[in-house]
Design a protein around this nucleic acid. Structure first.
Length: 625
DNA sequence: CCTGACTCA
DNA sequence: CATTTGAGTCAGG
């Protein structure tokens, strides 16, 4: 039902008597934290009724914004159900809504918990079709036709208030049906524990997402200039070496160019074409290989990181986390993804060698500078190009702190296989598991100059085991033959005798068709042909749920503080810490929370204070109050 | 093994 | 002609 200025009072009076609501906003687009804003709100109650409050439609009747304020006051502190609810709450938040006392129940998170497939389609239309029945989603197709006919992309304010409103009410009613169905399914699949945690996570993530992550746009702009100029140099260089101009980004053209130089790749893609990825390039003994590699790195930094961050036109970056994005239960992060910010930095010192040109190439590089194609002072600079340099404290009185678990997945694996000896060793801050394996399982000697290489093998095997890696991929990873890889892994299993039986039991269980539950009772449905993957889900997913448990407690702890939690990167949390609160020991207290989890897994936390930016981390010694 | 973003075909 | 899709590549864990 569409709300009008005439009936609004009566409807609001009724809504005031309710405690559970379904909400669904319609907006001008998806960037509700920045440029977009809501044009109407759909609200439903447990009775199965729904009302649409149109506020900013270009066609049809809107109601007075005064009713928006009244509606928001009614919704505050109540239980709100929604599909991808964080989006809707952010839209309301921009209108002055305070969600802090609400209970937030997101059907998209519930749907992921209930899904039995690897990559379920979690849009409302699909979920209604699978969980409720095809007929219930029919109104969606009808509405899509309307959008197409009127050339409406994502801005629903261009749609008629009545038509958009009826559609929105359909979503609201559907979402409530879906909620009831999924709520029951969660109980039947015995995932109440992990669902209880996810409910709280929705609000924690909202707190992070509405805060924004501050960046240094000045530095960003500088880096884009540097990278743009360096890109021109690198393209010229490749073209000179090949002898003609072409698009380095085009696979077919690159193959033709390389072949014309008599170069063939030792590596093939899955489609049996010549592969030119970094792994292939480093095996090619020709100057062009390194230039292409540098060109790619340059392009990645410019096109994936600096450019898009700068284009957001703001000193604050608003990301969105997905607590429904992965099979395992980890978070993922998008628009922008702040979980894959490069750790490396590009060093550009004051001459052409900085661009990794060798002696002969340097002369030619200088030539293109001298010929005026590129000005030297545009290319060089004493700044270092590091994406993490962009991430800076929110204000003069605060600093970024990075806190990460040491060898988290290893410890979680040890917990599952119940290796008491190693669990007690791993409690020590100094204990390095990979060194242990290198010595005890692989017979390495720490005084041997080769020891670092042996440690690297140990590390690869451990990850291989945790990832459920087959022997073939392990061999590739180690750069050894399959027989050698098999031998290394056998020694590993010999020294950690509980690992193999645990993994085998898990596989057998999956092959019998049984479901796997992680440490927080998150269910994994794995088909027998993918039984090897169970160990990965268990370890990665339990780790993901541990840090979620920590985040909920940290969020609560920081509620009345100036310090804020900014980003999660799987086993790391990034904070903006107020200097006075730092003095009174807040960092120690956060670390203590992180060391505690309901499974009693003994995790150590590395604390680093950032000097200036995220790129500059120093080990932090606690100052206890 | 788990992700997301960009580019070209 | 515009839009969608898959493949390839690369950043993180």
């Amino acid at each position: 039902m569409i709300v009008t200025d005439q009936n609004a009072d009566g409807i609001l009076d009724y809504l005031k008597t309710q405690s559970v609501f379904v909400v669904d906003i319609e907006s001008t687009g998806l960037d509700v934290m920045t440029t977009d804003f809501l044009c109407g709100i759909g609200v439903g109650t447990a009775s199965g009724e729904a009302w649409y409050f149109p506020f900013r439609h270009k066609i049809g009747d809107n109601i007075d914004l005064y009713f928006l304020t009244r509606l928001l006051r009614i919704l505050e502190g109540k239980t709100l159900i929604g599909h991808n609810l964080k989006f809707d709450i952010k839209g309301l938040y921009k209108e002055g809504f305070n969600y802090k006392l609400c209970v937030l129940l997101d059907t998209i998170v519930m749907a992921r918990l209930c899904s039995k497939i690897h990559a379920p389609r979690l849009d409302l239309e699909n979920l209604l079709a699978t969980w409720i029945g095809v007929d219930d989603a029919g109104y969606k197709a009808e509405f899509k036709k309307y959008l197409k006919k009127n050339k409406i992309k994502g801005d629903f304010s261009q749609g008629d208030a009545k038509i958009v409103g009826e559609y929105c009410c359909g979503d609201v009613v559907g979402t409530f049906k879906l909620y009831l169905k999924l709520e029951k399914t969660i109980r039947l699949t015995m995932q109440q524990e992990v669902w209880d945690q996810e409910k709280l996570m929705t609000k924690v993530l909202l707190n992070m997402e509405t805060l924004g992550v501050p960046i240094d746009r000045e530095y960003c702009k500088k880096c884009i200039g540097t990278l743009t100029n360096r890109e021109k140099l690198l393209i010229n260089k490749v073209h000179e070496l090949v002898g003609y101009e072409f698009d380095i980004g085009s696979g077919p053209q690159l193959t033709t160019a390389m072949n014309s130089l008599g170069i063939h790749s030792p590596v093939r893609t899955p489609k049996d074409k010549e592969s030119w990825d970094n792994n292939a390039l480093k095996k090619i003994d020709h100057p062009v290989a390194e230039i292409i590699s540098n060109y790619r790195t340059n392009g990645t930094l410019k096109n994936t990181f600096f450019g898009p961050l700068y284009d957001r036109d703001s000193d604050l970056i608003f990301t969105s986390f997905k607590n429904w994005g992965t099979v395992t239960g980890r978070l993922s992060c998008m628009d922008p993804n702040l979980q894959n910010i490069p750790k490396f930095m590009l060093d550009l010192d004051n001459n052409a060698t900085s661009m990794n040109f060798n002696a002969t190439n340097r002369a030619e590089a200088m030539e293109s500078i001298l010929s005026g194609k590129v000005k030297l002072n545009q290319v060089v600079g004493d700044e270092t190009v590091a994406v993490r340099n962009l991430f800076v404290p929110s204000r003069p009185g605060s600093n970024l702190f990075s806190m990460d678990f040491s060898q988290m997945e290893v410890v979680v694996l040890l917990y599952f296989i119940k290796d008491e000896e190693l669990l007690s060793l791993v409690k020590s801050e100094e204990f390095d598991f990979h060194v242990f394996v290198a010595i005890e399982a692989l017979g390495g000697n720490p005084d041997d100059p080769e020891f670092e290489a042996i440690r690297a093998i140990a590390k690869s095997i451990t990850f291989g085991v945790i990832y459920g890696m087959g022997i073939a991929s392990l061999a590739i990873q180690l750069g050894k033959t399959e027989n050698e890889a098999k031998m290394f892994r056998q020694r590993y299993y010999d020294r950690i005798p509980k690992a193999k039986p645990f993994i085998n039991d898990l596989k057998a269980k999956i092959e019998r068709g049984e479901y796997v539950y992680n440490g927080y009772n998150r269910r994994y449905v794995i088909t027998p042909d993918k039984a090897y993957i169970g160990i990965n889900y268990l370890v990665q997913g339990t780790s993901g749920d541990i840090i979620k448990e920590n985040m909920i407690h940290i969020d609560k702890f920081l509620e009345d503080k100036k310090s804020k939690m900014l980003i999660q990167i799987h086993d790391e949390l990034l904070f903006d810490i107020d200097e006075e609160e730092e003095e009174s020991g807040i960092v120690y207290q956060i670390a203590s929370i992180m060391k505690t989890n309901r499974l009693g897994i003994p995790l150590n936390v590395d604390v680093k204070k950032c000097k200036g930016s995220w790129a500059n981390k120093e080990k932090y010694e606690f100052r206890r109050s």
